[in-house]
């Protein structure tokens, strides 16, 4: 069998891994793993990763283009027989959608009237930013997509990402010309959601399965199979009402969600530049330094008649606002408690 073996005489024999270099690389690998944990990733690591994806995104986009061209071949051939039926169904949906469109316009006008009356400035609805998926690694460690637009297009970390059918995930790593989107199915994904029918709150927890889990639903949740699950906006990061999926009961009594966004490949997506509406109590909190409220209140108690009435009045207002803030904190705390109780 020796004749069937390689007869290398060009210096390949005796090639060995340098022990020093090998150990050094092992140490570097270990250090990278220790310091590049997603939960505690430092800014230099994040910016390095974003810079790398910026460089690689054009190349990946080039490769993705022919794949996009053939993406519909499978569904096209498979669905030829269903087209007539689907067409009829779509026409029916269009009729229903026109009713909802009218309703939406009426609601928008009403909201504008209310906002004018209350002098409330809601977040401006900015144009969504369209982007193509340029990389879709199916790794065991992260469920994420790389999209071909970044901070130059106005994308920032935390912005929700949607496709034609519903919420896909949110941006978590933004480069100048690329951004990485954490999918709802990823292990690290946590999104507050609610049932559209009953407003029953829950947290959508990704576990790398196709059907993310609903946690913190309480002992007797008001959720039924098929309920439409939408984002609740409780975290202030995602807007309220983004369609997420349908509730599905599991055999062990738990709940999972069949994602709307899975109805089509996550190919072209929109990034929504969502800015949270600051609640009025937090606006006041932002204007007054945190330490001033209690100090002024103390002064009022200790030196009630020290200043003129006008100044006392203004201090009194501040004190009220401070108390208001405290009340707001209590409300927030009670909310948190309620969430824990639900669990």
């Amino acid at each position: 069998m020796a004749s069937r073996r390689s007869t290398r005489h060009d210096g390949d024999q005796g090639v060995r891994f340098s022990r020093t270099l090998f150990i050094a690389l092992l140490v570097v690998s270990g250090a990278l793993i220790a310091f590049d944990r997603p939960a505690s990733r430092s800014a230099p690591f994040a910016s390095f990763r974003a810079g790398f994806t910026d460089v690689s995104a054009p190349l990946l986009d080039l490769v993705a283009q022919p794949l996009r061209a053939i993406k519909n071949i499978g569904p096209y051939w498979r669905r030829q027989g269903e087209l007539a039926q689907e067409n009829a169904r779509l026409r029916q949906q269009l009729i229903e959608a026109r009713y909802w469109e009218d309703l939406a316009y009426r609601q928008r006008d009403r909201i504008e009237v209310y906002e004018d009356a209350l002098d409330v400035e809601s977040a401006a609805i900015e144009d969504r930013i369209g982007a193509w998926t340029v990389a879709d690694p199916r790794g065991p460690f992260v469920r994420a997509r790389l999209i071909g637009r970044g901070s130059e297009a106005g994308i920032r970390d935390g912005y929700p990402v949607i496709n034609l059918y519903g919420l896909v995930g949110r941006v978590y790593e933004t480069g100048r010309r690329s951004a990485r989107v954490l999918l709802l199915t990823d292990l690290n994904s946590r999104v507050p959601v609610m049932a559209d029918r009953s407003n029953a709150r829950a947290i959508l927890v990704g576990d790398n399965s196709e059907f993310p889990r609903l946690d913190y639903v309480g002992r007797a949740p008001d959720i039924e199979p098929g309920d439409r699950i939408v984002s609740s906006g409780d975290d202030g990061i995602l807007p309220r009402g983004l369609p997420v999926g349908e509730a599905v009961a599991t055999r062990d009594g738990g709940w999972r969600v069949r994602l709307y966004s899975d109805q089509a490949p996550v190919d072209f997506v929109w990034v929504w530049p969502f800015r949270r509406v600051t609640p009025p109590d937090q606006e006041v909190e932002a204007e007054i330094p945190a330490t001033e409220g209690p100090l002024i209140a103390d002064q009022l108690v200790i030196e009630p008649a020290a200043d003129s009435s006008g100044e006392a009045s203004s201090l009194g207002e501040d004190a009220d606002q401070g108390a208001g803030n405290g009340a707001g904190d209590d409300v927030a705390a009670s909310d948190g408690t309620a969430t824990e109780d639900n669990r």
Binding site: G30, D36, R49, T53, S56, L60, P137, E173, R180
Partner: peptide, 13 residues
Amino acid sequence: DLLTGAPMGVWAL
């Protein structure tokens, strides 16, 4: 690691 979004060093190691 960088292309797939995995923590750096995992596949390298």
